[in-house]
């Protein structure tokens, strides 16, 4: 067997490793006993999802996943954890308490079962050839067809910034 014949197998293996990292990180968030460790589990999950995006053929979304989720949202969450843990609450603050964990797991498993039934019954019938994707196309699309989404997100981010600053300001 030549090297080229091993290549699809190796690609599949890397894809499944990314899947396992994403799912394992999420499961660690569910099982963690410490808020900060849960944030690290979330980091693993986000990076795994970024890898899955690369395999789905959209490198731009993967890069923005790493920049927005890992570089923005996760840092913000860690800041929130650190700011909201004071000396008053002591060390017990970082402990996570769960309520009805068995029922939560049952709910999740039931959802997985339902979705598995749906996915296995639907036949996806994609006849057409895969379209070629590139970052250039996304840029053109953002400036022409999808410009409304761009403007909407810009206004939404501005509103969120102003609102968050207004909410978080200290009352004098």
């Amino acid at each position: 067997m030549k090297f080229q014949e091993y290549l699809p197998l190796a690609t599949d293996l890397v894809f499944y490793i990314f899947c396992a990292v994403a799912v394992g990180g999420a499961f660690y968030v569910l099982m963690a006993k410490n808020v900060l460790y849960a944030a690290y589990g979330l980091l693993c999950s986000f990076l795994g999802v970024a890898g899955i995006f690369v395999f789905a053929g959209s490198e731009y979304v993967a890069a923005s996943q790493i920049m927005i989720y890992v570089g923005g949202i996760l840092i913000l969450l860690v800041f929130g954890i650190m700011l909201s843990s004071g000396k008053k609450s002591g060390k017990e603050y970082l402990k996570i308490k769960s309520r009805n964990l068995t029922w939560g797991l049952t709910l999740g498993l039931a959802l997985i079962a339902i979705m598995t039934i749906i996915i296995s019954t639907i036949r996806f019938d994609f006849k057409q050839k895969l379209a070629s994707q590139s970052i250039k196309n996304i840029g053109f699309s953002l400036m022409t067809d999808q410009v409304f989404a761009l403007e909407l997100v810009g206004i939404l981010l501005l509103i969120a910034l102003v609102g968050a600053t207004f909410i978080a300001k200290t009352d004098e």
């Binding site: 994403a22 999420a26 499961f27 569910l30 999802v49 959802l111 997985i112």
Partner: peptide, 22 residues
């Protein structure tokens, strides 16, 4: 499949945890 599992885990976390950040 991965998306289903992640969604279910996220739902379970949102429902069970007694911490707003979680």
């Amino acid at each position: 499949a991965v998306s289903t599992i992640l969604f279910s885990l996220g739902l379970a976390i949102t429902v069970t945890k007694k911490n707003l950040i979680l």
